[in-house]
């Protein structure tokens, strides 16, 4: 009675075929990543050494290490974090904890979506017009980092808002009913239970910011600097721009060198991403309510 009818068997075959097609499509997307990472490791790996990370580029950037670019990227990311995290978290707290469903909230949400969609080169133009020229920070770490901070703002806001909203409404209600103010509620119950999620978002921001090139090209990153920056008003080298420069602008660069630089950059970015992913997985496994 429950024997499979022919039509069902045919359906199952079609099902299996489709399943295979969709799987193949997925693999077309993910296999190139693995291949690319593999090539980077194979060709760039031999370049990586302690000296590569701790010496300056020499001989017209055709030899030597990446130290100033590495430190520059770290400086750019740090200043960008300092500028964007407080603003982004504040905005997320507003949207998640205070905002009513009104025109202001809708406008802010629309602004965030658009901020995330503006091309990076337009952010660069904005950074040049606003921070370098109008506010007269000059081409400097400060101007470049602020440009990166504006770019990264939507990432911080969206991920923070998600972690805040993951805290059940009932906890807030319970606090409010006890006479806690909104801020006391946020401070005692909401933030402590979303801080790990917020951190995950911040790590993700680090990863994105470290790889950006266009926004810093005209605002603070230099092709080559023979010295390390002394303050946020100095220019700096950066890994991303360094990769662009040695692979397109400098003649006579040995084949392996750009692979080495690319590997360092991708290494930082993927390390941050993996930390963020691991953190998130750990969070999901931890049951607090």
């Amino acid at each position: 009675m429950f024997e499979a009818r022919p039509i069902n068997r045919q359906n199952q075959t079609i099902e299996r075929i489709w399943r295979g097609v969709f799987l193949a499509m997925t693999l077309v997307l993910v296999i190139p990543v693995l291949v690319i990472l593999g090539v980077l490791v194979v060709r760039g790996g031999p370049m990586i050494s302690w000296a590569f990370l701790t010496t300056e580029p020499t001989n017209g950037m055709t030899e030597g290490g990446v130290l100033p670019a590495l430190l520059g990227t770290i400086a750019l990311v740090l200043v960008a974090l300092i500028a964007s995290v407080p603003v982004g978290v504040a905005a997320a707290v507003y949207l998640s904890e205070y905002a009513a469903d009104n025109w202001l909230t809708r406008t802010i949400n629309l602004a965030i979506i658009n901020l995330a969609g503006v091309p990076s080169i337009v952010h660069a133009l904005f950074g040049l017009g606003a921070f370098v020229l109008f506010f007269q920070f000059g081409t400097s770490i400060l101007a470049a980092s602020l440009t990166l901070a504006v770019m990264a703002l939507p990432v911080v806001i969206v991920s923070t808002r998600e972690s805040l909203q993951a805290v059940p409404m009932a906890f807030r209600e319970a606090c409010w009913n006890m006479g806690a103010t909104r801020w006391q509620t946020i401070r005692t119950v909401v933030l402590p239970n979303s801080i790990s999620g917020i951190l995950t978002g911040v790590i993700l921001e680090v990863s994105r910011t470290a790889g950006e090139t266009a926004p810093i090209m005209f605002t603070g990153a230099a092709f080559f600097l023979p010295f390390l920056p002394q303050s946020v008003y100095d220019q700096t080298m950066a890994l991303s721009l360094h990769l662009f420069v040695i692979s397109t602008q400098v003649p006579g660069v040995p084949d392996g060198l750009p692979y080495g630089v690319a590997l360092v950059l991708v290494g930082i970015v993927l390390l941050m991403n993996s930390v963020s992913i691991a953190f998130r997985t750990w969070l999901r496994g931890r049951k607090k309510w």
């Binding site: 905005a91 904890e97 965030i112 503006v118 952010h123 133009l125 017009g129």
Partner: peptide, 19 residues
């Protein structure tokens, strides 16, 4: 925090204005 939220609007308008 309201200022933080409004900053998103300020930045998108700022981008438009400065460019």
């Amino acid at each position: 925090v309201t200022v933080g939220g409004v900053s998103a609007i300020v930045f998108i308008i700022g981008i438009f204005a400065f460019v």
